[in-house]
Nucleic acid binder design. Sequence first.
DNA 1: ACTTTATTTAACTCTTAAGTTATATAACAA
DNA 2: TTGTTATATAACTTAAGAGTTAAATAAAGT
Lengths: 118, 118
Amino acid sequence: MPFDIPQDATFTALADPTRRAILARLAEGQATVAELADPFQISQPAISRHLRVLEKAGLISTRIDAQRRPRQLNPQALAQVATWLTHLAARYEAQYQRLDAVLEDLQSDPTIPEGDMK
Amino acid sequence: MPFDIPQDATFTALADPTRRAILARLAEGQATVAELADPFQISQPAISRHLRVLEKAGLISTRIDAQRRPRQLNPQALAQVATWLTHLAARYEAQYQRLDAVLEDLQSDPTIPEGDMK
DNA sequence: ACTTTATTTAACTCTTAAGTTATATAACAA
DNA sequence: TTGTTATATAACTTAAGAGTTAAATAAAGT
């Protein structure tokens, strides 16, 4: 079962909260740069740059409508990332089922509760 | 159908290729800091910092085994991110099915092929 | 007690990335 | 052609983050 490992640029693109908000907006339907910039306090040029990052990452694509450049989501790119993450989790689960892994666990102390490590 | 929006820290953690490689390694089973540092050229303290980032993001957790601090994957955190991405893609698909969205598409020019935009 | 092993923390450097404003480009409208 | 709308690019500033080495902490081994 081979699956694609997402590009570095894709994860980089997802790391910014403004860009994630843009993706969430585009999930509701295509939108122009002005429409995308509207909900944010940052300048329009800043949004344009975010869009460039998202497009290079393959997460969105651009159409031409006169002077407008409406953007739309590329759902396959999102799905590809989701698949990679899911496979990692599944791989972990598979290992965790193994008897020797369980025994290894019993040998040592329990997990440190969150926040107990300084 | 409510679903959790992953923390900003989680996406930030996933943005670094070394940290993703660490996650991939941990999907094969728990590992100590030294073991995790081994495949990389960077220093062990750098790995420790990556691990701190991953733990704050909820992606891994730490056990105590004498002087060792074996790390293990938190598959739920990965699954949560996957779910968020999948929901975005699904939401897009749902919008895309709508008739008016399709008509809107027909009104304007086709998508710019990748690489044609400077 | 002293040494070794495992890991973390601190202090620092350097690069990258996100924001800004000002200017350029491009299509349309009068 | 001149102006207006929509978006992109350039030049610049600032802050965050990833790396380094050196020193601190902590548990075991001798």
